[in-house]
């Protein structure tokens, strides 16, 4: 029996050295959105609602949107993967499912640790100052209060919101959309993530911030994390990702080195 165990350990070791370490495994995933109350006109009026109450009928038909249809891929440690595709192709949906925020209809998603999704609609507390939002965000990511005190100036510095006056002391509702997007990115990027999912978050910053954040994404990768990047800016994908997945209508059309996939994608879009 001891021999058997040793043999098993040996094979496990060889396979482990032979292949890279996966951080995200997406296995034949289907995602379906159910939209309530949409559909035929006249079902949303108070009279119709009252009639449903009286007759005991179920809510009007639920519209199903099959957003992702059988997607499979494996991401490895230290990879930066770009997700491209036309609007409504299921890129953001896949990211939200990987982050564990959306249930899958069929198939399964396995992840290392807890992936963090960084999107443009990730609103913090608009009535609070930027500095307080940094502290809240860091605590919400599980940092200790001492760590938060230490990191807050760094994060504010990185976001560059204080370049024009002391904006970190002002409520976030006074920020421009670019400024709040920069602050959000800076908060999320302050922590080491096993898997970081970025959804168009780099697009809102100006050119200087984009360069800085692209640098940060490279650092995160170097810390043995995996980064997913959804973007319509092919330039950003080309400079940050070496692998790209092209989704179209919820199906993978191509998955490979960025240069090849982007060439195909650009040819397709220019048709």
């Amino acid at each position: 029996m001891a021999e058997q165990t040793a043999a098993a350990a040996a094979t496990a070791a060889t396979t482990a050295t032979g292949e890279r370490i996966p951080t995200v495994i997406v296995d034949d995933v289907h995602i379906v959105y159910r939209v309530h109350g949409a559909g035929t006109p006249g079902t949303g009026t108070p009279v119709a609602g009252l009639r449903r109450l009286l007759t005991g009928k179920r809510a009007p038909q639920v519209t199903e949107v099959h957003a992702v249809k059988g997607v499979s891929f494996t991401a490895y440690r230290g990879e930066a993967i770009g997700l491209i595709g036309s609007n409504g192709s299921g890129k953001s949906t896949i990211l939200r499912a990987v982050a564990g925020l959306l249930p899958v209809e069929r198939g399964a998603i396995f992840t290392q640790g807890q992936p963090s999704l960084l999107g443009v609609n990730a609103a913090l507390q608009n009535d609070l100052s930027g500095e307080r939002n940094v502290a809240l965000g860091c605590l919400a990511m599980g940092m200790s209060p001492e760590e938060v005190r230490k990191r807050t100036p760094e994060i504010v510095q990185f976001s560059g919101i204080n370049d024009r006056g002391n904006f970190s002391a002002l409520p976030m509702r006074t920020y421009s959309s670019g400024m709040s997007a920069r602050l959000r990115f800076s908060i999320a990027a302050a922590k080491k993530h096993d898997v970081l999912l970025i959804d168009e978050a780099l697009a809102t910053g100006d050119a200087r911030f984009r360069r800085r954040s692209e640098g940060r994404v490279r650092e995160l990768r170097a810390e043995a994390g995996t980064v997913f990047l959804v973007s319509h800016a092919i330039g950003t994908i080309k400079t940050t990702c070496e692998r790209t997945i092209w989704l179209e209508s919820g199906v993978i059309r191509a998955d490979g080195p960025t240069a090849e996939v982007c060439r195909e994608y650009e040819a397709y879009m220019n048709k």
Partner: peptide, 24 residues
């Protein structure tokens, strides 16, 4: 661990590398 097929299905690979189901 000695199962000859272990490590071929995505679920098995995930289990081997300590990955967990997203959002459990």
């Amino acid at each position: 661990t000695a199962e000859p097929d272990a490590g071929t299905t995505p679920a098995a690979i995930a289990a081997r590398h300590g990955l967990t189901v997203a959002g459990a």
